[in-house]
Design a protein around this nucleic acid. Sequence first.
DNA 1: CCAAAAGTGTTTTGACTACACCCATGG
DNA 2: CCATGGGTGTAGTCAAAACACTTTTGG
Lengths: 280, 280
Amino acid sequence: MLILQCICSSIKFYCFLMKKEEQFSGIAALRKGDDFFHPGMSVDCVVLGFHEGVIKILLNRYKGFKNWMLPGSFVFKDEDVDKAAYRILKERTGLENVFLRQFHLFGNASRKLVLKEENKNIFTESYGIDINEEHWFYKRFMTVGYYALVDFTQVRLNEGYEGETIEWFELNSNISYHFDHKDMVFKALETIRQHLSYIPVGRELLPDVFTMPELRSIYETLLGRPLDRRNFQKKMLSFGYFIKLNEKKKVGAHRSPILYRIDPVKYDLAQKSGIENYGW
Amino acid sequence: MLILQCICSSIKFYCFLMKKEEQFSGIAALRKGDDFFHPGMSVDCVVLGFHEGVIKILLNRYKGFKNWMLPGSFVFKDEDVDKAAYRILKERTGLENVFLRQFHLFGNASRKLVLKEENKNIFTESYGIDINEEHWFYKRFMTVGYYALVDFTQVRLNEGYEGETIEWFELNSNISYHFDHKDMVFKALETIRQHLSYIPVGRELLPDVFTMPELRSIYETLLGRPLDRRNFQKKMLSFGYFIKLNEKKKVGAHRSPILYRIDPVKYDLAQKSGIENYGW
DNA sequence: CCAAAAGTGTTTTGACTACACCCATGG
DNA sequence: CCATGGGTGTAGTCAAAACACTTTTGG
């Protein structure tokens, strides 16, 4: 039920961002979320990073909840939906200017918080709030999904919300997702696969310096199938914006892979001219 | 301001669909839209058809409005968003089982009805409703866009809403769009272009029997560039699901193009096996 | 008979695929 | 010294691009 701590933090954070003086009490926020938020609408983010050879997904969980959920938030009344997504990223990872794309609105009528009786009681007992059918928090919510590609090495996880745990999970591991969040991840990945030709997966997910095997493994994970090492390298290098460094990365009992950097100028040029040239 | 007639019709139509007995009075509907609709959320459809060699878009306009808008609706409280989109299509074109895809949620904070003073007066005078900042109808609305590909020849336009005009426009003509609806059309077309490899544009937009030049012109319009006649034909026929008919279509002072039909069985097979094979 | 657009086939080009051998590294 | 995985080059295949001539039709 500590979910409201999060809501309160969100509100405080927003006030800070918006340079608003007001501070709202947490209980007031939950009691009268209608006053702050656009009704019946939330934003959830599928945040992907790359670390130790695998793609990871950022998930959080509130005390008392069994399953993991996508980092999300409500949308403030005077806040663009896109801005809300950026705010979520900033709140949880500290990152700004993240690569973020909307992928789907989930709008089934069945999307509403389901609380067991005992959980309702927690609301009543701890906060003196009667969570009934009429409560804003208990009504149908639509949620719009965004996916984010972030540089794992730059992320500083913010566990500032009391009662919230936030963690990286291996994308392809077995995760118990909250409600329909598994579907949302699936849809996000489907979208990413379709957009793979246009989006700068490598550039966003990798640190400045990386190896071709790392880059390839990203594509392999996202596509769900192995790619030919040689052909992959050939194709990537043919784009012309990779700078081969005079360094190698020691990663095991075998030859060390060469490190590369992306030439940002050439990269932007390539993006502009041949946006559709990443087909796999 | 006849927009509310539409809202009322929508409600009646919905009650009919849902086999609900209640009938709501129109004024009650506008006055208390909160009771019927999911708050702050609407659905708009970019409906495309093909007629006389050009792609057309279906737009409507309410009496008193200067500009054209996308056919849309609000979402009933117990209605899936997808269902709302299908309902809109059914209401306006009479079609069911339409090819319909969600493409984007437009959620800028600035999205709200802007009424001039004189228009507010119409509400007050005609319906005794004070449209003020607190009125549900006057608040910020997000809207989720769907695009539809329909067979023009099957459409029976429903002008049943008093005060509503609904018309086909040539997609590439100069149209005065309401509010941000032009952006929505742009985004829809961008999405369609990106999905062109997966979506059955020809099958959905064309009647059962059609010619290759017609099919090609659809691709050309959507892509915004000419395609080589011979290569196009070759590629399409290579898919193997076109049935060449022993008829031709007389369309001008030149050789008559051959008519084709799609073999539905082979088509479905092709879709299943090589979903990504329409790249242009 | 002429303009306009459709039907069709061939060659070239370039991209993706498949595949093999050698090299560096750690244990 | 050997297992592991990385670096690189070549030949084959297939699809897309480029391209020209002939046919049909209405006016």
